[in-house]
Nucleic acid binder design. Structure first.
Lengths: 186, 186
DNA sequence: GTTATCTATATAAGTATTTATATAGTAATA
DNA sequence: TATTACTATATAAATACTTATATAGATAAC
């Protein structure tokens, strides 16, 4: 169960649920997904468990913010998680599950379309991550190995996202070529 | 929601819940995880929805098997899923989430241990997948491009697993080297 | 000036998943 | 013959997650 720990990691400084959602959709987006409606009760539970505390904050737009910050107990719980085993489960990759059964469709043309659509999405992700990296590198001359320690590890997850999505892109190209060859398609 | 569709994919021929769990732990293990206690109600629901039907089968050991097989309606639902968009969400990679916050630990030695432990697990997965591939290639001279169509796509998921886990291994090595350099650790 | 968009929090209902537990037969092991 | 291990199904309870919906202020577009 990683979500509460991820939240504890994020709220080193006071943050609103809404701001946290934006972090998920940008910085954490290539390895974690969460709905906003999932974050509010999760934050509330951290507070109930004494791992976080909240303060009201002013908002430039809209209703007042509720800012959460981790307590010392919350920081300890975070450290426990970081010192525990690397979490490898559960793995769930919907599109690979689809590929696994693609033979049932008996329709090479639509299968090819599936892979092309997938490739497009993967390329878009690689491009987005590349842009993030380029921006970061141009803003901070310490990039990547002289970055402050916390950013040093954040940067590693960016590298991981790039490496893996690039590998998936190459795999996708290979699948497309093999399907074209096998079924004489263009 | 992919699980019901994966089950529909698997039960082209009659299969018991227990046998399905073994498929998850072997063939599908590198891209999907499911608990046995999740499979039984999921199969029951497919039957209730008219997408599968069950028959009692004899068992060599233990209580009688309950064999599920998809109906025509189930096959149609499977095809609908295969023709839909490639599923890219939700993504959840627990160990990358841990890496993201590793800076909070302020303990390069334990961080290094984390990556070494992770590397070990990744290598074990790559070795397992390599062994599967080697066995398959030696058993069937049609491997990989002349395989029957359904196995052709199954093989692609194996290729994906190998490509991605190999990329993660290289990334892990890189992270280890960077941490060693930065903190003068061996 | 009305609509759309963005900020911001929240809850209800439904679905999915995990953990714990129960049952029971067979076979090998100690 | 007692224990362990494997096959096999199943459910209850708890937790996690998704989808739909509600509220409301501020700003920008039309």
């Amino acid at each position: 169960m990683s979500l509460p720990h991820i939240l504890l990691g994020l709220i080193a400084e006071p943050m609103s649920g809404y701001a946290i959602k934006q972090e998920f959709d940008t910085k954490l987006g290539h390895f974690w997904f969460a709905e906003l409606s999932q974050l509010y009760p999760a934050l509330k539970k951290l507070e109930a468990d004494g791992l976080a505390e909240s303060t009201a904050g002013p908002s430039s737009k809209g209703p007042p913010k509720k800012l959460y910050r981790r307590t010392d107990a919350g920081r300890e719980e975070l450290l426990r998680w970081l010192a525990s085993e690397p979490g490898v489960l559960p793995i769930r990759h919907p599109y690979l599950a689809q590929v696994f059964f693609l033979g049932a469709s008996k329709n090479p043309a639509s299968t090819l379309a599936f892979f092309r659509e997938l490739k497009q999405r993967l390329v878009a992700t690689v491009q987005r991550l590349n842009a993030v990296e380029a921006g970061w590198a141009s803003e901070d001359p310490r990039y990547p190995d002289e970055l402050p320690e916390d950013e040093f590890y954040v940067q590693m997850t960016l590298t991981a996202g790039l490496a893996v999505h690039t590998a998936y892109c190459a795999w996708c190209d290979d699948c497309i070529a093999r399907i074209q060859r096998r079924f004489s398609l263009a």
